[in-house]
Design a protein around this nucleic acid. Sequence first.
DNA 1: TTTATCTATGCATTAATTTCATGGTTTGGC
DNA 2: GCCAAACCATGAAATTAATGCATAGATAAA
Lengths: 300, 300
Amino acid sequence: MIERFHLQLLTAVDECGTLTLAADKLHLSQSALSHSIKKLEQQLGTAVWEKDGRKLRLTQAGRQILILAKRLLPQFEHTELLLTQIAKGQRGSLRIGMECHPCYQWLLKVVSPFLETWPGVEVDVKQEFQFGGMGALFDYDIDVLVTPDPLFKSGVTFIPVFDFEQRLVVSQSHPLATLQQIEPADLQNQTLITYPVEPQRLDIFSQFLAPAGCTVKRHRHIEATEIMLQMVSAGRGVAALPGWLVDTYARSLKLVSLRLGTKGIMKHIYLGMRNNDVNIDYIADFVRLAKQTENQVDEG
Amino acid sequence: MIERFHLQLLTAVDECGTLTLAADKLHLSQSALSHSIKKLEQQLGTAVWEKDGRKLRLTQAGRQILILAKRLLPQFEHTELLLTQIAKGQRGSLRIGMECHPCYQWLLKVVSPFLETWPGVEVDVKQEFQFGGMGALFDYDIDVLVTPDPLFKSGVTFIPVFDFEQRLVVSQSHPLATLQQIEPADLQNQTLITYPVEPQRLDIFSQFLAPAGCTVKRHRHIEATEIMLQMVSAGRGVAALPGWLVDTYARSLKLVSLRLGTKGIMKHIYLGMRNNDVNIDYIADFVRLAKQTENQVDEG
DNA sequence: TTTATCTATGCATTAATTTCATGGTTTGGC
DNA sequence: GCCAAACCATGAAATTAATGCATAGATAAA
């Protein structure tokens, strides 16, 4: 069996020229190296080098091992370097799961500074989960779940990082645009545009229309946030989206956002993660950066 | 220090699912594996896997090691396979040195069947040596020397493999073409074409012209055998080459070969090799094949 | 020929690995 | 909800391997 040590030994002899000098370099006795090689040679059934005077000359077999050494040793060392970085928390992978369609815009504000602070951490964002965001978290498909609907189960921690109000968006010229607030009945003759997810996961249904026993004239699905806002701007329908998100497009697209009900629909974005991971440096820092965005958005 | 064993261990656990089954596969106790990993984890400063119920789940660090394992282990195994072939003499390299210009044609007849018999042996032919063929042999630049001039020194073995007569080649229409044999004086008014080497290494000088105190009208150098024969065919000069070599071109180029002196210049091709290498299977077989060509050439 | 240098090897010592025995945890069946 | 089975962790003992010392053998240089 060729061991890593043998590769180091061959390399050292190649660099130093003699077994004695190689022994110094490896902080071992010349005897130890001699014994090691003898044993290897017995196992392989072939000599690694032959004596030429008092020098050693690699045999065909020895040359092959040296070639192997020069190829493999750097890879061992590279992985070990990687592991010390992982041990220090400087390196790893952060797989973010998104269970909140409009939050994508917000996420970018968090990821951007994160990437600068943690160049060794690979960030990946996933949006589709076979067994829901929680399943993905438990199955180690993701490391952090961005969701407005936390499930406080044992084994996972959910931390609120951002508060916002879910508001109705309409175009400036829309009949509802002048109202102070929207009541469920106001939407009876409207086209409501939402992301293509089950209605029970949409707050405007579960917290606003359904409790009042109301419905809308038409319900359309659109995947992309910007297209959705373009449609609203063109008067083709209304949508329910986070207030801060509407604000960033309000001027350019001539949009107005309105409170839903008297108190409004107040939401929180939570970051969910496995308890074991909470103390990993770069994950803790991701949470910290996520909390910071609240101020930025309010100011902006 | 990540050792080869750790790579095998990680791979086995990855394949078997549990540490216990991996232990069976590696013919070790479950305890031994557990201890090994614990020690590695201490050295690395990071866990390799974490317990998830009674299963083991790789950590980020563990995944890196597994990636390393899947890349490096096959390379270890490949080299070990190579070494067993080298040990059995099925594989190696045969670097042939040529110190005999016209012998190249002959060599091809030997190399061709050799390559078929020894697919694992890499054959290389060298023709230029800084310190002569013997030096190249001693310096391990070549493994076999093809030469008509053996030097019987200790450490090397020279084996005669092929006998031939060095004859003068002239065109059919040349004035000398009708002679039974050539005497040194016959060449006084001739242009002699030879390979570009020192005259003392040319038999026609050292064994024929020089002893008789004769010389030629002109001496030209040409590197390539076929061009040399074309020149002779065109009546531009005469040359001294092995009889069997001339025979193969005699009809197509309208050439005649003549004996030099009464007894002719008789030569032998020798194969020289280091004593240590004489018993290597594929080298011994190369010698055997070289000896066989004698019959083939005589017949052809 | 002598001396310095280098590798090989037997033997005693030291270190590392492995196993055994056992305890703790989790899972699944009853 | 309890019990048995499966699995991993761990301490201590036993085994095995690696290492260094001392020295012999061999080569090259002086």
